[in-house]
Design a protein around this nucleic acid. Structure first.
Lengths: 178, 178
DNA sequence: ATTCTTTATATCGAACTGATATATATCGGT
DNA sequence: ACCGATATATATCAGTTCGATATAAAGAAT
């Protein structure tokens, strides 16, 4: 599964321009698979070359012209096939949590502030997500939205309950340095 | 923060070869920032060029020769500086959950099986993590291990409680197609 | 007047991924 | 004896993606 697959997936909902596909990634897929223009446009070009999508140009008033992409039958088949492949393992990357691994090298005050920031950031994400969950159009989108809220809530609770472990490590190593 | 930063971070614990650095990524950082040989070796080469690490060759018996990298003072300063930069937003990617967004295109049986697999996979991850949390050497490592277990447990509970939303969507669209 | 936002297409250099290659050694299974 | 798996080692490759940037036009806000 890659950006090409998901461009096909988005086009199963209907024809769209590259810009609209990016917006669909942002609105519907960003919690689980985000992509930027730098990968979307090359993907669309490759899909077009390979016959999985077709493309027509459309002029607009007061707007730049746009290229509208449609999925072909071949593209539909490829998408369904890709969809049934064994999914890869989830991937997660967090610079903030990585920083906490080196708490012993930071000032205790900085460690506490970082933990506060992480929690605040998760809270803000929950806020934004919660506002959007109810207006999601499909059940599976609501499902994923709820998923995003749930894991962030669990993360916050865990961090509040266990922050002392990391804070103590920073304090201890500062004392040891003195 | 990138692989170069974290190679420096790992070297603050002590000298290491490229292979050992990869193992440190796997054992200590994989929950929050994983990296493979394809990025570690170029990172080490760049760090060496830039004077942030130095490198000496060591012969071994019954083992291939190894190149041992040490962090320089300059490298220490760079790592600490990088560590205090504003961390980027967390990134999460899940092909399995992405697939659920297209549940309406899958057979209901396949949707249910996929959900079961996702849950099983999280349970296995929890198993592996739980076995390792107690033998982690630092509090911050234990903290992150516990974090990984907690969010996966929350994810499992959420999925069990809400799977019917996604399963219903698949059923409904199959009925509509008939 | 300038900056920001939106709608549009597109590209670039840097970073990373996953696979692969090479080398040596050991172990277990056929 | 051979093969595959595993471990210790270094290294590279093609493909993919990221984040920034560029261009264009229009409207809104400062």
């Amino acid at each position: 599964m890659n950006v090409r697959t998901l461009c096909l997936g988005i086009l199963t909902y209907g024809d769209a321009s590259g810009y609209e596909i990016k917006k669909a990634f942002q609105e519907r897929l960003s919690l689980v698979f985000d992509a930027g223009f730098g990968s979307i446009y090359p993907a669309l070009n490759k899909l077009t070359e390979d016959g999985f999508v077709s493309c027509r140009a459309e002029a607009q008033s007061k707007r730049p012209d746009k290229k509208v992409y449609s999925i072909t039958t071949e593209g539909q088949l490829k998408f369904l096939d890709d969809l049934q492949q064994q999914p890869a393992e989830d991937k997660f990357r967090s610079e903030a949590l990585t920083t906490l691994l080196f708490a012993h090298l930071l000032q205790p005050r900085n460690v506490s502030e970082l933990i506060d920031e992480i929690i605040t950031n998760y809270e803000q994400n929950i806020d934004v997500l919660s506002k959007g969950c109810d207006i999601k159009r499909s059940h599976s989108e609501k499902f994923l939205c709820g998923f995003g809220v749930t894991v962030r809530k669990a993360a916050i609770t865990y961090m509040q309950d266990n922050r002392h472990l990391v804070e103590a490590e920073s304090l201890l190593s500062q004392n040891a340095a003195e």
